[in-house]
């Protein structure tokens, strides 16, 4: 083996260890292999405030239909804030305001007065960091949304429970104890129960705010597998602190820093050749 001490005569090194890149010559890219998706959500010139403090600055972003988009960035960068703007969850916090710009879902501005936030949240479901099953049976947890909507047809409810639990990859594990408490499930099962509850009301979009941060690797793998399945029917936007999770699960990735969108591109590009040095530094674990 080579003696490392003999390396002192080697050529000078770039101690940042990232190779300097000349952009003088740009090789024309080959045609991309990805299928083009329709835009479902369009965010334009969006400024958002918590009281007097601006949390999001001039965000412009188009999110694809039936795709998984990951929001990444260090704590406080605004990724969760933006996620919560997509179903107006921030309305529940005092002093929040949209000062400029719009969020459109299928060309409808969701921040106008004619949009009912309750109706909006039926279309845009949310899964949180900490699983939050209600202190009810597994069955009742799943159909909670439908009950509120007034659905009483037992056959219909049974069908939705099975379909949603299958959709959340939980059916086989709980089918014999549907009337036991949801709180008796493991952490990973509880999170999948929350996903079942979310998809039971047939939303179009599912927002996930660090859905695996409290789960062990096996439960995480199951949720990631589920995300892959769910994107056939739903548009998914996931906030994650795990770079590898963003790389594994998402089709596109948006990197935020200090309330600004720094880079948005195919996930493959973000993790292979990000165009912004801040993105590169973040995904390589150099800051954040």
């Amino acid at each position: 083996m080579v003696n490392v001490s003999s390396l002192s005569n080697a050529a000078p090194m770039d101690t940042s260890s990232a190779t300097p890149v000349s952009r003088a010559f740009k090789v024309p890219a080959r045609a991309t292999d990805g299928e083009k998706a329709d835009t479902l959500i369009e965010i334009e010139n969006f400024d958002f405030y918590y009281g007097a403090k601006q949390a999001l600055f001039d965000i412009n972003l188009k999110l694809d239909d039936k795709r998984v988009t990951a929001f990444i960035g260090p704590s406080g960068c605004g990724k969760s804030t933006l996620l919560r703007c997509l179903n107006r969850m921030n309305d529940l916090i005092d002093g929040t305001s949209v000062k400029r710009g719009s969020v459109k879902i299928r060309n409808i501005d969701i921040n106008t007065r004619d949009v009912d936030p309750i109706e909006l949240r039926k279309r845009v479901g949310m899964v949180f960091q900490k699983s939050n099953p209600f202190p009810k049976s597994i069955y009742e947890n799943v159909i909670y949304g439908l009950r509120i909507q007034g659905e009483t047809n037992k056959a219909k409810l049974d069908e939705v429970v099975e379909k949603s639990l299958r959709g959340a990859a939980l059916w086989d594990e709980v089918k014999d104890r549907l009337h036991e408490s949801g709180l008796g499930l493991s952490g990973g099962q509880q999170q999948r129960l929350c996903i079942a509850r979310t998809i039971a009301v047939s939303p179009e979009i599912i927002l996930m705010d660090e859905p695996c941060s409290a789960l062990d690797p096996i439960a995480t793998a199951k949720v990631e597998e589920l995300i892959h399945e769910l994107k056939k029917e739903f548009t998914i936007i996931i906030v994650t602190h795990s770079m590898q999770q963003a790389a594994r699960c998402s089709d596109k990735t948006a990197f935020f820093y200090m309330g600004k969108l720094i880079e948005y591109a195919d996930t493959r590009m973000i993790f292979m050749n990000p165009s912004n040095p801040q993105t590169e530094a973040y995904v390589s674990g150099r800051f954040g």
Partner: peptide, 10 residues
Amino acid sequence: RAPVATELRL
């Protein structure tokens, strides 16, 4: 080290 981007290419 699970390298990505420039490091992975390197």
